[in-house]
Amino acid sequence: MNNIKNKPLYKSIKEKIKEDFKGLPYYSNLPGERELCIKYDVSRPTIISALNLLEEEGLIIRKERKGAFYLGNSPYTDHQLTSIVGFFNDAKMQGKKVTNKILSQNIEKADERIAKKLNVNIHDEIFLLKRLRYIDGNLFSLATSYIPINHTKYLLHEDFTEKSLYDVLSSKGIIPFKASQKVLIKPSDKYEALYLNIEEKTPICVLKSTTFTRKNELIEYVEVKSEAYKTEYEMVVYNNLISEER
């Protein structure tokens, strides 16, 4: 193997790994340490040192018992904190393909927590849409939408596999106008871990959003959960102390 003169071997291997795997999609799993040792014909300590450098540069992240994940290429950036276009259209505008695996699409009775979120009575009927979201074929998030019953008569039989919920609502004259949102980081429970294919207690990002029409009619309450390492939000903030006229 040709190495740059006077450069430590592990630094040369770091550059080789960086070059060989630069085409991987964001958050792709790199080969294991043993495979990399064979590929580059070097010792495990050399591979570990090379991976340490890549991690310091922010190009990979290593997770116990799961290996290294490549972070070099652009991830999906979520603009839902500053935009009301919805996840599907936000990803589409970034050149990403979104598909959904529908887990539940039916009428249920609101429990106390959801009744408060939707401002309905306990045991009132609501529409539930629970799906796994994929970006370019890779699992990204678990989204659970709760919608008041007056908006659900045409949602039960919609195919949301490659369709935006907001687009369907908008086509019926129910236009999302504003949303109240909160974001938190928490350890995943066993059910969230199962759905997201991660270890229990892995940090996840939870976006909680309540959407309204221009007339302040509540449309949807949704909880979106994704592995924290896969989540990147972008927002624009303003200085409210400065007059817009200045």
Score class of each variant (00 low, 15 high):
70 Y>P: 11
147 I>K: 00
63 K>F: 12
166 Y>T: 02
139 L>W: 08
185 I>L: 11
132 L>V: 10
45 P>G: 07
156 L>T: 06
233 Y>D: 07
100 N>S: 15
62 R>A: 03
116 K>H: 14
230 K>Y: 01
177 F>P: 02
112 E>C: 03
131 R>A: 07
69 F>W: 09
14 K>M: 14
243 S>D: 13
150 N>D: 03
46 T>P: 06
169 L>H: 01
208 K>A: 12
201 K>N: 14
195 Y>A: 05
234 E>M: 12
34 R>M: 09
205 C>R: 07
65 R>V: 07
141 S>Y: 07
194 L>G: 05
117 K>M: 01
194 L>I: 02
91 A>V: 02
245 E>W: 12
55 E>A: 14
123 H>Q: 14
52 N>Q: 06
100 N>C: 13
213 T>H: 12
88 F>P: 00
235 M>V: 09
75 P>S: 10
27 Y>R: 11
8 P>A: 08
126 I>Y: 03
1 M>V: 08
189 D>P: 04
117 K>G: 00
84 I>Y: 10
222 V>D: 02
211 T>D: 08
6 N>V: 10
144 T>C: 12
216 N>T: 03
13 I>C: 01
12 S>Y: 06
208 K>F: 05
104 S>H: 07
149 I>R: 03
6 N>A: 10
152 T>Q: 04
197 N>T: 09
190 K>H: 12
82 T>A: 15
8 P>M: 09
235 M>E: 09
40 Y>M: 03
143 A>G: 00
147 I>L: 14
236 V>P: 06
215 K>S: 08
208 K>W: 05
215 K>L: 04
85 V>S: 11
54 L>D: 06
133 R>I: 01
117 K>Q: 10
70 Y>H: 14
17 I>R: 02
92 K>H: 06
234 E>D: 10
202 T>P: 00
59 L>E: 13
202 T>A: 05
240 N>L: 14
121 N>F: 06
71 L>E: 03
218 L>Y: 12
98 V>S: 07
181 Q>F: 04
189 D>Y: 11
157 H>Q: 12
238 Y>A: 11
119 N>D: 15
15 E>P: 04
207 L>W: 06
107 I>P: 00
198 I>K: 04
15 E>R: 10
172 K>F: 14
15 E>I: 05
226 S>V: 10
29 N>W: 05
62 R>N: 04
187 P>S: 11
111 D>K: 04
9 L>Q: 09
20 D>G: 12
206 V>R: 07
13 I>K: 01
106 N>Q: 10
167 D>F: 11
204 I>K: 00
177 F>L: 06
91 A>P: 01
145 S>L: 02
91 A>R: 03
66 K>R: 15
54 L>A: 08
58 G>N: 06
